[in-house]
């Protein structure tokens, strides 16, 4: 387990395996909680209890209703900006390093300009306005 002797890549991935431990501990905690809950809780289901909540009246039809398509547009916009961030973050860490000149800066501004035009387009189309 000494990272000095290992090649760089191995210790690099080792840091991610460590993250996996926390996920496992978290899942183990949830599983233990569910297990304890199962042992300790009462279970007395009745027909009324098993209905979904509709503010006091019996639910009619299925709960999987159609929803406004607007959420879908926001998901798209999010993807645009998430990908934007993926390019922006590494650029931000290296742009001041020697070897990256003004071209690096201007290139990113052009890229951000394109992103901004996308946002502006959505804005003008009225997608961002909630009616």
């Amino acid at each position: 387990m000494n990272g000095m002797a290992q090649p760089d890549n191995a210790s690099y991935y080792a840091t991610y395996t460590t993250v996996l431990t926390v996920i496992l501990v978290g899942v183990a905690f949830a599983a233990a909680a569910f297990g304890a809950n199962r042992l300790l809780r009462p279970t007395r289901p009745t027909r009324e209890k098993l209905l979904t909540y509709e503010s006091g009246v019996d639910p009619v039809g299925e709960g999987w209703a159609q929803t406004h398509v607007r959420y879908y547009v926001f998901a798209y916009l999010y993807v645009v900006f998430a990908v934007d961030a993926i390019y922006l973050f590494p650029w931000a860490t290296v742009f001041a390093a020697p070897g990256f000149g003004w071209v690096t800066l201007v290139e990113m501004f052009v890229f951000l300009g394109f992103i901004a035009v996308g946002l502006l387009y959505a804005w003008r189309k009225g997608v961002l306005t909630w009616t």
Partner: peptide, 19 residues
């Protein structure tokens, strides 16, 4: 997701400074 975009963009300036 909307606010995560703003959050990520706010952090870029920090990366610019810290490298």
């Amino acid at each position: 997701i909307s606010y995560e975009v703003a959050m990520g963009l706010a952090l870029v300036a920090v990366f610019l400074y810290s490298g």
